[in-house]
Design a binder for these strands. Sequence first.
DNA 1: CTGAAAGCGCTAACAA
DNA 2: TTGTTAGCGCTTTCAG
Lengths: 391, 391
Amino acid sequence: MPHREKGSGPPSIVEVAREAGVSTATAGRVLGGYGQASAASRAKVEDAARRLSYRPNGLARSLIHGSTETVGVIVTDVGNPFFASAVRAITDVVRAAGYEMLLANTDSDPEAERRAIQVMWEKRVDGLIVAPQSPESAERLRALADAGLPLVLLDRPLPALPQVDQVIINNTLCAQRAVAHLVRLGHRRIAVLSEAARDFPRLRDAAPAEGDAERPSAARLVGYAAALRRAGLTPDPGLIVHSPYDRDAATHAVLRLLRRDPGVTALFCTDNVLASGAVAALQRSGRACPDDVSLVGFDDQEWTTLVRPRLTVVRQPNRELGSTAAERLLERIAERRGDGAGDPGTEEAATTGSGTAPDAARDADAQDGQRLVLRGRLIARDSTGPPPAVS
Amino acid sequence: MPHREKGSGPPSIVEVAREAGVSTATAGRVLGGYGQASAASRAKVEDAARRLSYRPNGLARSLIHGSTETVGVIVTDVGNPFFASAVRAITDVVRAAGYEMLLANTDSDPEAERRAIQVMWEKRVDGLIVAPQSPESAERLRALADAGLPLVLLDRPLPALPQVDQVIINNTLCAQRAVAHLVRLGHRRIAVLSEAARDFPRLRDAAPAEGDAERPSAARLVGYAAALRRAGLTPDPGLIVHSPYDRDAATHAVLRLLRRDPGVTALFCTDNVLASGAVAALQRSGRACPDDVSLVGFDDQEWTTLVRPRLTVVRQPNRELGSTAAERLLERIAERRGDGAGDPGTEEAATTGSGTAPDAARDADAQDGQRLVLRGRLIARDSTGPPPAVS
DNA sequence: CTGAAAGCGCTAACAA
DNA sequence: TTGTTAGCGCTTTCAG
């Protein structure tokens, strides 16, 4: 291995140029593949590069070009199979377009999210996909959106940012159907297990159409309430059970519920982690499913067909959620590049009629973020059945 | 586009300096938090920065400092819960140290892996964690290791790279114990379902001590063979079943096996995906578990205690695997930084005794990559029992 | 304490 | 076809 002269660090293009006996410009032209170069110098340069095992410095390149060929992705937890699937799909799509992915977990910690957003911005990602934690995230993201950074919201909408694209599931309707399914089977005392249970007072009277402006857990509660309302049932606060995103916590919450209220005949879980906890709880409680208690989960995972009874669930298109978000982001990135190349004069002129500030053009473009709503669907399996006959 | 207009793109430090009426140097000092600055100019600069919503450009900074505060992670599939857990743990550890993560999936495609390695290198990650696909990966990685890039192998060892740190599981022994458990229960016709089945001829006579130099699937086959050997049984090629990492494929492979060879009384699966396929197959075949067929899986997932019978598995510390790798990497990065600051003269002198080339010092340091072997353990549950009485 | 100027590694005008 | 020369946005001597 030929040792490098200039102390530390990988070789730079000037060292390659020197080794090859050409200028840095020609070296750059052959190594960067952008200009013209004679076969002779091409050979010399490539040879020298190989000898020094040279790799171009992407930082320098990005600094010049103003793009990093990298997209940022911020989720709460890649460990959750739901996000793992979505992230997997995102990587596939962006990689095909030549992008890399910077990934951050926030663990539902607002401070971590703030930091992640800031770092992504400092590292100059070309675009960002984020599953925001809460409405407060909107403030943090607005600055990026205003700066024109391509941005797509994943799974969780942010009504405060109508100018950014959002890719979500029709959670409210799906939940409504899931609960309607239970109602149709004859259930009257239907409990719900949700991370958003505390928000129920605010959500119970929301119109189904408003539901999908909430984060998924909350939207699903809106659907739950709507289904009960349609069936002429009034929600019982005792049946709205809170649990954090943790299987064991969910198990205990359900065990407590069953002990406290033996009359419950059905349970709707707003998420896959909670559903797995509920299955465990039912098994431990000795209640038969679906004979004593029916169960519906949200988010179909592989294990749902392995357990007995096989779980009735709402299946949501996890991978498609990710790939759609990624595609949307790539389009936005491409658009922005296009903008930069266009003549700023004409563009400004074209929008002066409606515009006010000098940069109205870009804002106008960004104003209508697309809202893509992917559809989940109910898959009735064996964990749901008629309630036990009243004693 | 010749030059970017001052308007486009995020504001640079010179615009902030101009707005604040100071030099770029002072602006840099307050915004970068490195020099001294009077309260007066500090206020002016911070104010200007806020007005322009300025964010420092990390690329420029990294270009100067020679570090990006980013680590690369290359795995085959974040969608696989095993890697999802490991990756999750990695992010936690590196984030606590102020690093971000660049993530790439290779999907077991050597070309994708090659590209990923190259891109990580060009983006100048400060270190790299990789789960290599195959022995050929060693060639690709050797260049990075030689260049002194901190590198840690995750889950899959590469004997050809003794100079790099490797964090793995004691797969061979774990598999051996799993199969010994079946032998102890009285099983004689024990099948194995593995992605590495085709390599069995090469692996069958390996010493258990050599097993852990193989990738996990292969190492587990070595353990399988060793356990049989110890029990005085000879492996039957008909019981070594291949399946790719795909649940449905695994299901069909197992169904075929049971049809072809009804005398099988136990099955060992070398991986969680294959195990889930096997559970599905058993359910569909109508064979009772464990009464007709016992089942052991590798890699404990949440669903293993939800299915009935609850699955006997080898549990491996997935998160710890990731966090250990990350910690190791951070140490290596810190070491390298230290090296750079140290006096190269003394260092060379210290190792001249054993060294030969001028740069022997660094190589000598790197020569002994640590090999960290984390331990899995067998958890006997209800899917294993004595074989049915012979008819 | 502050500013001018020299880079980090690369690309892109412009000359030669 | 090639080389020279400015930068990209920031940090960092080195004077003032």
